[in-house]
Design a protein around this nucleic acid. Structure first.
Length: 814
DNA sequence: CTCTGTTTTTTTTTT
DNA sequence: AAAAACAGAG
């Protein structure tokens, strides 16, 4: 099809073509096409590191500069809030103030924004709350118990998973019940729980994560007039990471890109997936849609991402233009060759080869440790070596498959005094004390949310237990009032006077906070209300006092966390002077792991490979490259599982600009039990000549002698039996030697070396000789840092240069 | 109702 | 190994 642009880009006029020159400068022909093409639908297939963010921002800037679109007509969807912020900033650099009116956000944030405006249409209020997966799990857990569903083999986790999956497919309990085998009692109970769950959410004036998308689609379909206002508004829709959209998100995009007809058609065609239907005479054509993605980087099938959304884009949008970006501007050729080789083993993909003109670069470094601690030590040493060679810590990253793997790395990093930060894991907002604080806020903002009120009922301990809780719930039911309102009449609950007083006290605090944060008399509260209200709640409820009075050392940290949370609220007030409590809660509910990545501090980033998507670093360490980890054991059974794992590994590899390290351990402790780990099958998919094995799986085998470690056992050429020479192993330079011979199998395996130890008072000075449990004897070169963070720089006789945190290192002065 | 000690489960990835 | 769930005493 010939691409006659619907709108000719940047014709004459005050904003002439020369305005575009800087936007188009330095682009290759494909990138140029991706920026300048105009038409109803455009698919940009963007391989890793092919400059897609730059293309996307320039495309937006180009639309704005040529006056083809007002900022308010642009909706750009990114994968994380962090990515959204970055894109806003980059567009801002290109077009200045015009960047303001655009919607650049995640699917979830955009939907919250729409729902807050339109919630009243279908029985919610604009102060609805958002349940994160922990909240919905708690609710489901209660329902499972009430329905005694465990008797049918339904666990909270499985129910939650199934409901989420169904919602991603835009199913509700009724539509599911129609096709389900209802003679199976387990199915019947499941449907009941699903329906109940939905009822409770509605009663609590709350949406879960999946509802944010699904209910927005429902809203658009049930209220075409509402949908039309958004269709008229957004004329250019751009979606990043399109390969990771699920069906609900796909449907949302379709709803938004429908043509708007002058006469709103009443019964909405329920088969309405075909959007360019000729029979209506549209008053306005559908919005132009640009999607960017790479099916090789689709790693979210487990949460409903449907790779067909991208692979069948051309069928869904007939006449769509497709642009392929294959030149990689990020990595060296060695890294790309490895990536290409790995991903080439996936069979059902369009062949696509990334290439680079940056030269071969360094070889990939491989290392096999005896244990996960040994592996971590390798990473720490290598990080230090790179840092000494001039690479900032912030340009290095360590990836792993599962969050639990971070522990061993963290231990060694602390001991080696390597600055690091962990992205994700137990997130700040999932800590119990923060969730408690949030529950207090929600109880004020959305009193209908019974879950939150119940949560704070006995936090801090007020002597209110199960019995009282049930009594309150029954009273509320009988009187037809909400759980929250029942708290205001403690004397009628039929509980003892002591407990009445406790309930009355809680009610008074909540009431006071409500008066402060949501003043009845339409006056505008100062920006700091959220922070002030939060402080008030925490202080007057006795929550902080209880923590301070406790002698559990963890509670000290909890107080600090709460202080930080209040600081977050103050920060929020500064950035959003008009932000309401609902805005604050939204922001908190939607922050993701990748979002709190800020590169201003110089520390090594540690994260899962999933979190790593969309990021890049000079040096990357992919750890735990073992069978049962990557590919993960659980994925082996799932259809398409191993393929998705391979894509995940591919994502990890392609994050690296200059140096890539692949490491594994030969034993790994899991569940508190040590087991033998085998090298990942993905390792043999990388051509041997690309990898410089410092210590190969074969080497380690010949020492450990458990069995044939199956790396490459079935490959004839290049790889072979257990002979280390076949791996091209180089002897380690003494300085880089990681594992002294004496610490081989017998000493290193799985020793939890980070046990409680306090050398706080140990005085060391340059010139002192010391002995270290693992590294042997050495001489102190220098001591830096203060107090608990004093660091000894030690030159070990056998193990080379190390940094040690004096307070906890297993050392003694000689 | 709360505290303490014991048993069981957990680790796949996330907006 | 650590967190969560559970059971029983006070």
């Amino acid at each position: 099809m010939t691409e006659a642009p619907l709108i000719v880009p940047s014709t004459a006029g005050p904003s002439g073509p020369q305005d575009q020159d800087d936007l188009l400068a330095g682009l290759n022909p494909q990138q140029l096409a991706a920026v300048t093409y105009r038409g109803p639908a455009l698919l940009i297939v963007a391989g890793a590191g092919s400059g897609k963010t730059s293309v996307l921002t320039r495309r937006i800037a180009s639309l704005l500069r040529s006056r083809e679109a007002w900022p308010s007509q642009i909706l750009a969807i990114t994968f994380t809030n962090k990515a959204a912020g970055e894109m806003r900033e980059r567009v801002g650099q290109l077009v200045g103030e015009a960047a303001r009116g655009m919607w650049i956000s995640t699917f979830h944030s955009a939907c919250v924004r729409i729902l807050r405006r339109e919630a009243e249409h279908f029985g919610f209020t604009k102060s609805f709350t958002i349940y994160d997966s922990g909240d919905s799990r708690a609710l489901i857990k209660r329902l499972v118990k009430e329905h005694e569903a465990d008797a049918y083999g339904l666990t909270p986790a499985s129910v939650q998973g199934r409901i989420s999956k169904l919602k991603n497919e835009l199913q509700d309990s009724e539509s599911y019940a129609r096709d389900a085998n209802m003679s199976d009692p387990a199915e019947r109970v499941f449907v009941e729980i699903f329906a109940d769950y939905q009822r409770r959410l509605r009663k609590a004036n709350a949406f879960d994560f999946d509802d944010l998308i699904g209910q927005t689609v429902y809203l658009f379909r049930a209220f075409p007039k509402v949908a039309d206002t958004y269709r008229r508004r957004f004329r250019h829709i751009l979606v990043d990471e399109y390969q990771d959209t699920n069906h609900a998100q796909y449907a949302l995009i379709h709803e938004l890109t429908r043509p708007v007809s002058a006469d709103a058609p009443d019964p909405y065609a329920s088969n309405g997936m075909m959007i360019f239907e000729p029979e209506t005479t549209p008053e306005l054509a559908g919005a132009s849609l640009t999607v960017v993605g790479d099916s090789d980087q689709s790693i979210y099938a487990f949460r409903g991402a449907d790779i067909r959304n991208i692979s069948e884009f051309e069928r869904d949008f007939p006449g769509a233009k497709v642009v392929l970006l294959e030149q990689n501007y990020r990595s060296t050729q060695n890294i790309l060759s490895a990536a290409n080789a790995v991903i080439g083993h996936n069979f059902d993909r369009k062949d696509k080869k990334l290439w680079s003109d940056r030269g071969d670069g360094d070889k990939i470094v491989g290392f096999t440790g005896y244990s996960q601690h040994d592996e971590a030590q390798f990473v720490a040493d290598e990080v230090e070596a790179l840092h000494r060679a001039g690479m900032p810590y912030s340009e290095m990253a360590v990836f792993y498959r599962t969050n639990s793997q971070s522990r061993a790395l963290e231990e060694i990093f602390i001991r080696s005094a390597v600055p690091y930060k962990i992205m994700g894991g137990t997130k700040f907002y999932e800590r119990a004390e923060i969730k408690d604080a949030l529950a207090y806020l929600i109880s004020v903002a959305n009193p209908a949310d019974e879950m939150s009120v119940r949560r704070i009922l006995n936090k801090p301990r007020r002597g209110i237990g199960d019995v009282t809780e049930t009594a309150i719930a029954r009273f509320a039911d009988d009187q037809g009032i909400s759980f929250r309102d029942a708290l205001s009449m403690p004397s009628q609950l039929g509980v003892g006077p002591k407990i009445q007083a406790a309930i009355g006290q809680l009610d008074a605090v909540l009431t006071e906070a409500t008066a402060l944060m949501l003043p009845a008399s339409g006056e505008v509260p100062p920006p700091t209300v959220v922070a002030d209200g939060l402080s008030l709640l925490l202080a007057k409820s006795g929550y902080l006092d209880a923590l301070r009075a406790s002698r559990d050392p963890q509670d000290e940290a909890r107080v600090e966390n709460l202080d930080e949370f209040v600081a977050v609220a103050r920060d929020f007030a500064r950035n959003n002077p008009e932000g309401t409590i609902a805005d604050f809660l939204t922001e908190v509910a939607l922050v993701s792991d990748a979002d709190d990545l800020d590169d201003e501090s110089g520390s090594v980033s540690m994260m899962t490979m999933h979190t790593a998507k969309g990021l890049e670093f000079d040096a990357v360490f992919v750890t735990g490259v073992e069978e049962d980890l990557i590919p993960h054991r659980i994925s082996a059974g799932e259809p398409g599982g191993p393929q998705e794992e391979r894509r995940l590994f591919y994502v990890g590899i392609t994050r690296a600009r200059k140096r890539l390290h692949l490491s594994l351990a030969m034993t790994r402790a899991q569940f508190g039990e040590v087991s033998v780990a085998m090298p990942s099958r993905f390792l043999q998919e990388i051509p041997a000549e690309l990898v410089d094995w410092r210590q190969s799986p074969g080497d380690v085998n010949s020492r450990g002698g458990t069995q044939s470690r199956a790396l490459n056992a079935r490959r004839g050429g290049g790889f072979g039996g257990s002979g280390g020479d076949r791996f091209g192993v180089k002897p380690l330079a003494p300085r880089d030697r990681i594992t002294p011979l004496s610490t081989a199998m017998d000493k290193f395996p799985n020793k939890v070396t980070g046990k409680v130890r306090d050398n706080g008072d140990l005085e060391l000075a340059a010139g002192d000789r010391i002995r270290h449990d693992d590294f042997g004897e050495g001489r102190v070169d220098a001591v830096t840092g203060e107090g608990a963070k004093r660091i000894a720089h030690v030159r070990f006789d056998a193990a080379g240069l190390k940094k040690l945190l004096i307070k906890i290192a297993p050392i003694e002065k000689l």
